[in-house]
Design a protein around this nucleic acid. Structure first.
Lengths: 213, 213
DNA sequence: CTGTTTATGTAGCCAATGGCAACATAGTAG
DNA sequence: CTACTATGTTGCCATTGGCTACATAAACAG
């Protein structure tokens, strides 16, 4: 029985690590600061020294989550292959992350826009779309994709894959395999970008025919 | 001061109504059964007679939410116009609902797959995709869309719009207008379906080139 | 109408939680 | 050595969800 030192030393990291385990196991609502403290053999108020309140802890988790996710996506975007292959790989990286850390993902997104989130937290979610934007612009320049509003296309791709990731993470695709869905989604998006969207004048959708931006 | 009757009479509905207000105001975590009871001038244990626990109340909210959302989507799918116009309108109906009831939407989806949700709750989320499936099949038969796996295409469309709806609901589209995003998404998806996806043999994505189903 | 059963609401209790303040200990800098 | 600060502890509090026992009303059976 080596008696524990008065100071834990790495409480902050330990809290984040243990909290990550817990939320993936029992969900955010099952996360208790006091239980967390007990798990780490520390007094119930100790977490308060590192995270002012529960939300601050969740913010910390979200930040770590974004860092880790962005690293994976960036790595995927830098692999070799043609534009389309990289597009698919980026999508897979995103969806894989979502499936591996479903609860974390919801924490990340529910946290990102609450009033007093840190600047870093508010900006770090944009990496994914930046990467998509760059890739699409490149592919357009290479003549592989029809020309079109890069900003809008990147946003649409991001949003679509986000949906796939969330549904996959939430286990809402009863039969379908996640990989198949991811692939089908990239396939359809890419096909749309290859074909290009109809010129604004031709759109006849019953609405005002407005364009993005 | 008419003194209140011992029996509220419509407590269940009142609880759901008030709970809906509350979650949209302060989020799910700000929802307290006891506060709810106080708001309705009823004892703290009264809600327990209608909802065995908090989760049951959330399930109730989710069910109502799906009913209301499906009604809107169905109405949109039955409006007149060509296939494409109806596709856009369905998407708009979904996204509009999401933006109007952002928190409810998360409750709906986080609730849908927990172990002991009712059968009705587990199935009611599928209406959207059923409608998409029907519309796409129709448009394919009419020769408006290239042929392709309806099941897969419908799922991809559903998933993409779900992503748009969630990001819109979460207020994560910093600059972009929700309507513009919705329209751009339907535009790109439709363009992809008009063009059709490449035949399986041609796919060269660096992965195994598998198909859905 | 009367007595019984069932639905609905109340009151009191409990353990657990998040948060706060007062205190203790240990590194660190002067 | 002495302050100072960071980190951890203890004790306290109001609030919460949930449970049980009880009260009242409504529905129903004879």
């Amino acid at each position: 029985m080596t008696d524990l030192p008065y100071h834990h030393g790495k409480l902050r990291e330990a809290l984040l690590a243990r909290a990550t385990e817990i939320i993936e196991g029992v969900g955010v609502e099952g996360l208790s600061l006091r239980q967390l403290a007990r798990d780490l053999g520390v007094s119930h108020a100790a977490p308060g020294k590192h995270f002012r309140d529960k939300q601050a802890l969740l913010d910390g988790l979200a930040l770590d989550g974004f860092r880790s996710m962005n690293a994976r996506i960036t790595a995927a975007s830098e692999a070799d292959g043609d534009h389309r292959a990289r597009f698919v790989r980026i999508a897979q990286a995103y969806v894989d992350f979502a499936v591996s850390h479903p609860v974390l993902l919801t924490v990340m997104h529910s946290t990102k826009h609450h009033p007093d989130a840190s600047d870093e937290l508010r900006n770090i979610g944009e990496d994914g779309i930046r990467i998509a934007r760059a890739l699409i612009a490149e592919a357009q320049d290479a003549g592989e994709l029809a020309s079109g509003d890069v900003e809008s296309l990147a946003l649409v791709c991001f949003v679509s894959l986000h949906g796939a990731a969330l549904l996959a993470a939430g286990n809402l695709l009863d039969g379908a395999s996640v990989d198949d869905l991811t692939f089908a989604t990239t396939e359809l998006l890419w096909a749309g970008m290859v074909a290009g969207v109809p010129a604004p004048a031709e759109t006849r959708d019953g609405t005002s025919g407005r364009r993005l931006r």
